[in-house]
Nucleic acid binder design. Structure first.
Length: 594
RNA sequence: GGGGGUGUAGCUCAGUUGGUUAGAGCGAUCGCCUGUCACGCGAUAGGUCGAGGGUUCGAGUCCCUUCACUCCCGCCA
C-alpha cells in the first residue's frame, strides 16, 4: 500500500472485481491486436494480465514499449468471461483494465529473452545474470535455496544448536586444498588465508564450552571447478557437538535431512534410517565410497574360482596368478538381451581404458551351462560356485573385470553405473542416503610408498586408546564418516581427536615430528591441552543439497552469482587488476605485467 | 597441467561428398489486426561463419595454430 502498488502481481482474484488498484512490475509479454493490447505484468510473486484498448490515449505509448520495462499501472480489476479464463496463472480469473501507466525503469533491447524456456550459453547468462535470474526456473531455484536455508536454521535452533560466525580472514593451513591468500597491509610480507572450512574454529568453539554449534559457513578453496563444484567458494552447514559418539551425530543429521527432503521434494526417501556401510564393504560391493544406492547392482569378488581347474579362461588365470583380482556384476534375467547389449558394454569398457568386460549368461537345459564368448571356459562346477557366491540364477548374466586394486575398483564402479543405466534400473524419483563409516586412518601413498593420513588427520582412531596397535597403522580405523545421497558425496565428518598425546603419535606415523605438529597446529594443540571435551561433527554441502532438491545437475543453477570455470565473475569483472598504489600499500610487486 | 565437446544474425539453431548471392524460428523496426494468454498476418533491417595462417580454381565446410565457453581427469585435509 504505497505509491507503487496496492497489490502484487499474484494477489488479485475475482473477489476484487471492480476495485481500482495499482500494480508495478516488469512487462513479461505483450500481445498486440492492433486495437487491443494485452500486457502480462510480472513481479517476484506472479503474473497479472493487463488490458488497454485504442480508446485510451496511452495505447500508442504502451504499444511501443520494450519488454522487461518496469512500469506502474493504475487500473480497474474486472472478472474475465468464462471462456477467457487462464488456468495457468493464479490471477487467471481477472484482468486489469489499464487507465494510466508510468515508466519506472526503461529497458534496452535484451541480450537474452527473459520470457522463454530455451537454454542459453553460460557466458551470456553469467554476464547478464540479473536478467537470467528473472527467468522462472532459476528464480524459483534461488527462492528454494533461501527457504531451505531458513528451514535448516530453524531446525538446528530447535535441536539446541547455537549459530556463530567465525573469522573470514584467518591463517593459511598446511593441509588440504590450495588457499586463497590476502596480503596484510599492517604486517608487510605476511598473508591471511580465507578459511577452507571453519574446522579449527568449530573445534575451538567446543573447547570453549558452547556444546552445540552450527553455521551456514562460506568456505574458500582454490581448486578447479566441476559441474557440482563452484570454483572458489561454497557453503557448508557446518556443525559440531560436544560429548557425542558417532551415532549421536548420525541421529541429528538423519532427522534434519529426512525433514528437509520431505518438506522440499516430492521424491521418495528410500531409507528413513540411512544404511551404514563400511568403507571396505563399499569399495568391494560398489567399487566406490560414494555409492548410488538407487542402483541395485552389486559387485562380487570371484577371484578364488580362477585358481581352480574348473575354469580354463587362461587370460584371466594368468593375470590372477600375477596378483590381479576378478570381480563381477550380475544382471537379473538378461538371457533374452540381444548380443549388441553385451557387446556395447564390453566396447564401452574398453573405451574407459579397461581390458574390457568378459561376460556370459547362465542357462540350463539338462545341466547348468554358460552362453557367450567366454562361456565355454567355465565348467558346471565353476558356474555353480559363482552362482552360490553371487546369488546369480539361471537366466542371469555375469560381467567380469580383471585388474589390480584401484583400477579394478574404478572399472567395476563405472560398469555398475553403465549397466544400470542401459538396463534402466535407477529410479529417478527416489533419494537414497547412506553413511560410509570405518575409514582407515592411514593409507599408502601410491607415489611415494609412504604412509599418509587417508582422510582428516584430526579424526579419532577407533578402539580403546591404550589398546591401539600403532605397529600396524594400516589396520587402524577412524571415527570418520561420509554421508552420500544418490552417488553424490554431501559431506565428510568425524569424531575428533581431542587428546594431544594421541595426536602426536598419529602424526608421527605419518612422518611429522612433535615439533612439526606444534608449529603447524599450535592454536589447536594448545587449546586441546586445557581441558577439551570429546567432540565431533560434520559439514554437509548446502549447494549440493539444493541441487538435489531442485533436481539440477549444475551448481550454477542454484547459485545466485556464480563464477565461470576459470573462476571469473563476468558480471562484476573479477578478478581484476589493481592500482600501483594499492600494491605499494601492501608491499607487493608483480613479476609479470601485461 | 592433460583429454573431449561447442563456437554461424541480438538469442536458439540448420547448413549434405568443398561449389554461385549463408538460411529458419524467436527478438528488433515498420505496417495490418478488439479477446489473446507461445495471439495472428505482411514487410524490412541485421553476418569478418570466434581469431590468425595454410591447402585449393573455389573454404562456414579440409589442415595447422590460437582464443573463449563447457564437460571430464589431475586437484578437492
Amino acid at each position: 500500500m504505497n505509491k507503487y502498488r496496492t497489490h502484487n502481481c499474484d494477489q488479485l482474484r475475482k473477489e476484487n472485481n471492480g476495485e481500482n488498484i495499482i500494480l508495478s512490475g516488469w512487462i513479461n509479454k505483450k500481445r498486440d491486436h492492433g486495437n487491443l493490447l494485452f500486457i502480462d505484468l510480472r513481479d517476484n510473486y506472479g503474473v497479472t494480465q493487463c488490458v488497454i484498448d485504442k480508446a485510451n490515449s496511452n495505447f500508442v505509448k504502451l504499444e511501443k514499449i520494450q519488454l522487461e520495462t518496469v512500469i506502474k499501472v493504475e487500473g480497474k480489476v474486472i472478472k474475465r468471461s468464462n471462456d477467457s479464463i487462464n488456468k495457468e496463472i493464479n490471477t487467471g480469473e481477472i484482468e486489469v483494465i489499464i487507465k494510466n501507466f508510468y515508466v519506472l525503469g526503461k529497458c534496452k533491447e535484451l541480450p537474452l529473452p527473459v520470457f522463454s524456456n530455451q537454454e542459453y550459453a553460460e557466458e551470456i547468462r553469467l554476464k547478464y545474470r540479473f536478467l537470467d535470474l528473472r527467468r522462472k526456473k532459476i528464480h524459483e531455484n534461488i527462492i528454494l535455496r533461501s527457504k531451505v536455508i531458513s528451514f535448516i536454521r530453524n531446525e538446528m535452533n530447535k535441536l539446541g544448536f547455537l549459530e556463530f560466525q567465525t573469522p573470514i580472514l584467518t591463517s593459511s593451513s598446511p593441509e588440504g586444498a590450495r588457499d586463497f591468500l590476502v596480503p596484510s597491509r599492517l604486517n608487510p610480507g605476511k598473508f591471511y588465508a580465507l578459511p577452507q572450512a571453519p574446522q579449527q574454529f568449530k573445534q575451538l568453539v567446543m573447547v570453549s564450552g558452547f556444546d552445540k554449534y552450527f553455521q551456514i559457513a562460506p568456505c574458500f578453496r582454490d581448486e578447479d571447478a566441476r559441474a557440482d563444484r563452484s570454483p572458489g567458494e561454497f557453503y557448508q552447514l557446518d556443525m559440531e557437538m560436544s560429548f557425542v559418539e558417532q551415532e549421536d551425530v548420525f541421529k541429528v543429521v538423519e532427522k534434519l535431512f529426512v525433514n528437509t527432503f520431505k518438506k522440499f521434494s516430492k521424491k521418495k526417501l528410500l531409507f528413513s534410517e540411512f544404511p551404514r556401510i563400511s568403507y571396505k564393504e563399499a569399495m568391494l560391493k560398489y567399487g566406490s565410497d560414494k555409492p548410488d544406492l538407487r542402483n541395485p547392482l552389486i559387485i562380487s569378488d570371484i577371484t578364488e574360482i580362477f585358481f581352480s581347474e574348473d575354469v580354463s579362461f587362461e587370460i584371466f588365470k594368468k593375470l590372477v596368478n600375477s596378483g590381479s583380482k576378478v570381480r563381477c556384476i550380475v544382471t537379473k534375467n538378461t538371457k533374452d538381451k540381444p548380443r549388441s547389449f553385451f557387446d556395447n558394454i564390453d566396447k564401452w569398457a574398453k573405451e574407459q581404458g579397461a581390458s574390457g568386460l568378459a561376460y556370459f549368461t547362465i542357462e540350463k537345459e539338462n545341466e547348468v551351462s554358460a552362453r557367450g564368448p567366454v562361456g565355454k571356459f567355465f565348467s558346471k562346477k565353476a558356474l555353480e560356485e559363482i552362482m552360490s557366491k553371487t546369488g546369480a540364477e539361471v537366466g542371469d548374466s555375469i560381467f567380469m573385470a580383471c585388474a589390480k586394486n584401484n583400477d579394478l575398483e574404478k572399472i567395476t564402479s563405472l560398469s555398475r553405473e553403465k549397466i544400470a543405466k542401459d538396463l534402466d534400473l535407477i529410479d529417478e524419483n527416489t533419494f537414497a542416503f547412506c553413511w560410509i563409516v570405518d575409514y582407515p586412518m592411514f593409507e599408502i601413498d601410491e607415489q611415494t610408498n609412504k604412509i599418509k593420513f587417508s582422510h582428516n588427520p584430526f579424526s579419532m582412531p577407533q578402539g580403546e586408546v591404550d589398546k591401539i596397535d600403532f605397529e600396524k597403522p594400516l589396520e587402524i580405523l577412524a571415527y570418520q564418516y561420509d554421508i552420500v545421497c544418490n552417488g553424490i558425496e554431501l559431506s565428510s565428518g568425524a569424531i575428533r581427536n581431542h587428546i594431544p598425546e594421541l595426536m602426536y603419535k598419529l602424526f608421527n606415523i605419518a612422518g611429522y615430528s612433535k615439533n612439526d605438529v606444534e608449529q603447524k597446529f599450535s592454536g589447536m594443540i594448545n587449546a586441546l591441552s586445557y581441558g577439551a571435551p570429546p567432540h565431533g561433527g560434520i559439514a554437509p554441502g548446502i549447494d549440493r543439497i539444493i541441487m538435489l532438491l531442485a533436481n539440477e545437475k549444475n551448481i550454477r543453477e542454484v547459485t545466485m552469482f556464480p563464477m565461470n570455470q576459470n573462476a571469473q565473475d563476468l558480471l562484476m569483472n573479477a578478478p581484476s587488476e589493481v592500482s600501483e598504489n594499492q600494491l605499494k600499500e601492501l608491499n607487493l610487486s608483480l613479476k609479470t605485467k601485461k
